[in-house]
């Protein structure tokens, strides 16, 4: 599961742009990951400018 560190996240939506499953939404200051759609490919984790996303296996 991908976990968002809300203290780090700058809610820029870069993760949304790269998600191949369209599983991520950005709502104002809130990144919402749909766990049913997420395939844990980790591209969002890697692209994040500050490392606010973490894959917790």
């Amino acid at each position: 599961m991908i976990y968002v560190d809300r203290y780090k996240c700058g809610y820029c939506g870069t993760c949304v742009a790269v998600c191949p499953e369209a599983a991520i939404d950005l709502l104002e200051t809130f990144i919402d990951i749909n766990d049913n759609m997420c395939k844990a490919c980790d591209i969002c984790v890697k692209i994040c400018p500050i490392g606010a996303l973490v894959d917790e296996e």
């Binding site: 949304v16 742009a17 790269v18 998600c19 191949p20 369209a22 950005l26 591209i43 400018p49």
Partner: peptide
């Protein structure tokens, strides 16, 4: 709708960016 580009995806246009096609900025 900017970089997120979800409207396209809702309408069947694949706008997903591959890591070679996006800069991550700060």
């Amino acid at each position: 709708d900017g970089t997120e580009s979800k409207i396209g995806r809702m309408g069947g246009i694949d706008t997903t960016l591959k890591p070679i096609d996006i800069e991550s900025g700060v």
